[in-house]
Simulated assay, not measured.
Amino acid sequence: MTRTTSESTYEQSDLRRRPRVFMFAMVLALLVAVGYVVYAVGVARSATNGASASLTASSSGSALVGRTVPGFSLPVLANDSSASKLGPGSFRGRPLVINFFASWCGPCNAETPMLAKAAAASAGSVAFLGVDENDQRSAALAFLARTGVSYPVVRDAGSLQSSYLLVGIPDTFFVAPDGRVIGAVQGQISSSTLENWLRKLDALAHHG
């Protein structure tokens, strides 16, 4: 059977179109694959960032903000002869600053003199409680004398790390008169940050 010229031309045109259609399909498939990879990477990155943010929040102690301050009763190390043990409950009804420190901690050595001065200036309205972490008694007492601390200090051997979400020291917590944690700072606190929190606590002391 003899093919007509039009049939031959159609087949040749169809043969020329096939590679183009195949190439278009390949490009489309590639674009879809790339889009999926970009989407998957974005989702994974968001999940990772979310997990990191959650870890940071918990590690910094900010997860305690809004909650009742974890209770404890620990042996007094210095500056309170009226009790053998103290804890947050000992200061119920007063704004309270709880500072975790140790004599071997560099940032603690830097910030504690500032805390000591702030505590002395705020003695009429805001209470301070130091928690000496995993320290030798003699070294801790020498540290307190050197830095001028006059507020009560208790000793801890690591029992509060879980309840206070401690991953390092220093750590400072700001507690309202009703026992709620209203702020937390991980690491060395700046003078401006301390002043801001003390103003808030002082306002709570006078206005409730």
Rank of each mutant, 00 (worst) to 15 (best):
L204K: 02
Y39K: 09
A121G: 06
V181C: 04
T172Q: 00
S159L: 08
G61A: 05
Y151D: 04
A102S: 09
A53W: 02
R45K: 13
Q12D: 12
Q188R: 14
F128Y: 06
S138N: 11
G42L: 04
T48Y: 10
E11M: 10
V32F: 09
L15N: 12
P152H: 00
G124N: 08
N134W: 08
V154A: 00
G50T: 05
R92S: 12
S6Y: 08
A140L: 02
Y164F: 08
S60K: 04
T112E: 11
A47S: 10
A119V: 05
G71R: 05
G93F: 00
S125T: 11
Y36K: 10
W104Q: 01
Q161L: 11
T193D: 11
S82P: 03
R155E: 13
Y36N: 13
Y164P: 03
S54R: 12
S163E: 05
P170S: 06
A53H: 04
Y164V: 04
T48Q: 15
Q12M: 09
D132E: 11
S52N: 13
S84G: 15
V97L: 05
G124V: 06
S8N: 11
V41E: 11
E195T: 15
A47K: 07
F143H: 01
G106D: 14
S191E: 15
V27I: 15
D178K: 06
A127H: 04
N79I: 01
A203W: 09
R16N: 12
R94K: 08
T2I: 13
A176Y: 02
Q161P: 05
K117C: 05
T9D: 13
L15H: 09
L15I: 10
A25S: 13
V181K: 00
S191N: 09
L96G: 01
D171F: 03
D156Q: 02
V27T: 12
K117Q: 13
G93Q: 02
L31H: 05
T172L: 00
T56G: 12
K200Q: 14
M23H: 06
S191K: 07
A118S: 07
W197P: 07
G208D: 02
A123L: 05
T9Q: 15
T48S: 13
C105I: 04
S138D: 15
G87R: 02
R18T: 08
A83M: 10
N196E: 15
S125V: 10
L141W: 01
Q12R: 13
L129K: 00
L30G: 12
L144T: 03
A142S: 15
T4V: 08
A116M: 03
